[in-house]
Amino acid sequence: MMNIPETLTIGAFAKAAGVNVETIRFYQRKGLLLEPDRPIGGIRRYGPTDVDRVKFVKSAQRLGFNLDEVAQLLKLEDGTHCHESADLAAARLADVRLRLADLQRMELALSQLVKACSSSQGKVTCPLIASLHRHAPAGKTHTEGLKRTSLRN
């Protein structure tokens, strides 16, 4: 990364890491990032390893890891715990697949509702508005309720 010692102020650090200062402070409160000692009469300084750590956190978040999971990954970052890292990633992948399935159901339901709205003629209640007024049956997701509603219309 950069060949500079611990000379970055928090503002320069945040800019180098591509985040804002409050993100740095938040990560420090969450224990994801150490807060350097403040020299007497001076300001805290950060270096390239701090920048790399924040970029690691942001990369993990983009993959869908929550901050607790990121903290676990940071504990495993020496590279010798690949099996544990893979277990975390497998759990995240399973969650992503569930969300994708949910999104596909939502896409189908909305597609059918849009089609039903387009084919409605005259003074007929809008199928989309009507379906949103109905409630999904107990134990089913709202998306499943919309899908069933749109199939009836």
Rank of each mutant, 00 (worst) to 15 (best):
R38P: 02
T141A: 07
S85Q: 15
G79P: 03
Q61K: 07
T143H: 06
K147H: 15
L113H: 04
L93S: 13
V96H: 10
V51Q: 00
R148C: 09
L146D: 01
S119V: 11
K15C: 02
L88H: 04
R152D: 09
S111A: 13
L32C: 03
S150I: 13
M106F: 09
V96Y: 03
G79Q: 07
L93N: 10
C82D: 15
A12D: 14
G139A: 08
K75V: 11
R44F: 09
C82Y: 12
G31R: 12
V57W: 05
L128D: 02
L108M: 11
T80W: 02
K75H: 03
G139N: 12
M1S: 13
S118V: 00
A60S: 15
S59F: 12
A60H: 05
T125M: 06
K58A: 06
A109W: 06
L67P: 05
E107M: 05
S131K: 08
A101G: 00
G122N: 08
S120Y: 00
R38W: 06
G79E: 08
N153C: 05
D37N: 14
A138R: 11
A90D: 09
A94P: 03
T49R: 13
G18C: 00
K123M: 04
L151E: 15
R97A: 07
R134P: 01
S119C: 01
H81W: 08
E35A: 14
A71G: 09
V57Q: 03
D78Y: 05
C126N: 07
A17Q: 03
G64N: 03
L132N: 00
G41V: 04
E107P: 00
V70K: 04
A16P: 04
E6C: 03
I43D: 04
G42D: 02
V124T: 11
P5F: 02
L32H: 12
G18I: 07
I43N: 13
G122E: 08
A14F: 10
V124A: 13
G122A: 07
P48Q: 14
D52P: 00
V57L: 03
P48G: 11
L32W: 10
N153T: 08
F26E: 00
A91H: 12
V54K: 02
E77H: 10
L110C: 01
I10N: 00
R45E: 07
G47S: 07
T141F: 04
R105C: 04
L128I: 10
R45Y: 13
A91G: 13
N20F: 06
I129F: 11
R99F: 01
A71K: 15
Y46N: 01
R38E: 05
K30V: 05
F13Y: 14
S111M: 03
P36V: 09
S118N: 13
T23F: 11
G18Q: 02
S85D: 06
L98S: 12
R105F: 02
Y27D: 00
R62F: 05
V19F: 02
G139M: 08
P127H: 07
F26W: 05
R53V: 01
T149K: 08
K123G: 05
I43Q: 10
I4G: 01
H133R: 11
L76F: 15
G47H: 11
A12M: 10
Q72Y: 00
D68K: 14
